[in-house]
Design a protein around this nucleic acid. Structure first.
Lengths: 222, 222
DNA sequence: GGAAGACACTGTGTATACAATCGACAATAG
DNA sequence: CTATTGTCGATTGTATACACAGTGTCTTCC
C-alpha cells in the first residue's frame, strides 16, 4: 500500500491552479489562506510551497511572502531553451538505447494521433501528444533527466495555453512524429535529437505574440 | 541589511558535510539528531531536507526517513550527462552573447591558472578553475540555467573528489581553456559548446575506476 | 526450538503556539 | 503642509506538542 503524503497532494493542487490560470502570474499567495481553503495546517503547506519554489512555479522572499512566478517573454525563452536541450538529450538517449517495445508503442500512439488530427479533436490530440513524448522521454534510462523534464514540461505548459494545437499545427506535429519514428527505426539518434530540439524551439515563436507589450529584441538562443 | 534564513544555513551545512564525505552515501539522517547538533528545531531542518532532496543530495521515503543519495556508477553517468549538456548550452549562450568584459575576465583567470599549474598548486588550480567556468556560465543570461548548474556542479563534485587535478590533467585543462578563449574571440559558439561538453564527459572516464565493483557495461551517453 | 503476534519504542507527519519582522497609517514636529 | 517616527496589525520564521506509522524485540503457543 502506497502512502500518499499530504504535501504532494498540496503541491499538485497548487500546480494545477497555476497551470489552469486560477492563480495568476505575480499573484501573492498567503499561507494562511491556503490553509483555510485546504483545511490543513501550515507545516505541509509551507513544505509544498518550498517544493514549488524549487520547481520554479513560485518565488519566495524572506519575510515578504510567496508570489506566483512571473511569465515574461524572457522567462519563456529561458525555460523553453532549457527544456529543448534536456528533451532533445532524452530523445537522443532513447533512440540510442532503443528499448524493446518503444517503437511499437510510438507507432500505436501515432496512429491514434492521426485519427485525432483528422477528427479535429484538439483536446484529444494534446493529451496523446503529451503521452507520445512522455513515452519517448521515459525510454532514456536517466531517472534524473526524466524527473527534470516532468517539471520543465509543466513549466512550459504555462506559456502555451490555447496557443498551440490549431489544426495546421497538428499536421506539422504529425510530420515530425513520422520523422522521429523513422529515426528510431534507423537508429539515428542525432537526427531525432535535432528534430525534437527544433520542434520545441519553434514553440517560442508561436507564443511570442502573447508578449507584444514587452521588448522583443532578446538575443538568439540555442 | 540582508536576512539570512536559518533554513539556507542548514542547507549549506548539510551540503558541505555530504561533499566533504562526513556524511556518506546511503547513510541515514535523523531529523532529531540534526536538530540537537545544530541547536535548532525541526521546522527549519525539515524544510532544509526537502530542498536537499529536490537538489538530489538526499532521498526521502515516507515514514521511513532520509538517506544520503547513493553514488553508483549509473548515477554518476546520469548526472554528468545532464551537466555536460546544460553547461555546454550555457557556454554556447555565453559565447553568442559575448557580454563586455567576459573575454578580459577569462583571460585574466587563465593567466592565474597557468601560474597555479606551473607551481603545482592543485587546490589553487581547483578553485580558480571553478571560478573560470562560473564566470563563463554566469555570462549566459539565463538565470534558471545558472541556478540549475550551480546544483549540478555540486552534484558532480561528489564524484570527483581526489580524482581530478593531477598535474597532467591540469595541463589538459589549460589547453581546453585556450581553445575556449579562442572561441570567444572568434564568436564560434558551436566550437565552445563542443569543447566544454567533451571536457565534462571525459571526467566520467576518470572516475570510472572508483566503481570497479559495479558492472560497467552501461550504454553510451551523449 | 521455531514462528507468529503483541507491545513498546523510535521517528516521521501534522498541528498549534510563540517570536520576529515588515508595511501601513497616524500623530507630531519642523 | 510635509516629513519623520512610532505603534499596531498582519504575515512569515521558528519552536514545541501531539498523533500515528513502522520496526524490533520479547513472549507465548504450537
Amino acid at each position: 500500500m502506497e502512502y500518499k503524503s499530504l504535501v504532494s497532494s498540496i503541491v499538485e493542487h497548487i500546480e494545477g491552479r497555476i497551470l489552469n490560470g486560477e492563480l495568476k502570474p505575480d499573484e501573492r499567495i498567503r499561507e494562511l489562506s491556503l490553509c483555510e481553503e485546504l483545511g490543513v495546517s501550515r507545516s505541509p503547506v509551507r513544505e509544498a510551497l518550498i517544493i514549488l519554489e524549487n520547481q520554479g512555479f513560485l518565488v519566495k522572499q524572506a519575510r515578504k511572502g510567496v508570489h506566483v512566478a512571473k511569465t515574461t517573454y524572457k522567462e519563456a525563452v529561458d525555460t523553453y531553451t532549457i527544456r529543448a536541450n534536456l528533451e532533445s538529450l532524452a530523445t537522443f538517449l532513447a533512440v540510442k538505447r532503443n528499448s524493446p517495445g518503444l517503437l511499437a508503442g510510438l507507432k500505436k500512439l501515432n496512429r491514434q494521433l492521426e485519427r485525432a488530427c483528422k477528427a479535429g479533436k484538439k483536446e484529444e490530440y494534446y493529451r496523446l501528444n503529451n503521452l507520445f513524448h512522455e513515452t519517448f522521454i521515459g525510454a532514456c534510462n536517466n531517472e534524473r533527466l526524466i524527473q527534470m523534464l516532468s517539471v520543465y514540461t509543466k513549466q512550459t505548459a504555462r506559456y502555451r495555453k490555447e496557443v498551440l494545437y490549431q489544426p495546421d499545427r497538428m499536421e506539422e506535429s504529425l510530420k515530425r512524429h513520422d520523422f522521429l519514428i523513422k529515426s528510431v527505426e534507423e537508429g539515428d539518434a542525432e537526427a531525432a535529437e535535432k528534430i525534437r530540439k527544433e520542434a520545441i524551439l519553434t514553440n517560442i515563436k508561436h507564443i511570442r505574440h502573447k508578449f507584444n507589450n514587452e521588448e522583443e529584441s532578446l538575443e538568439n538562443q540555442s
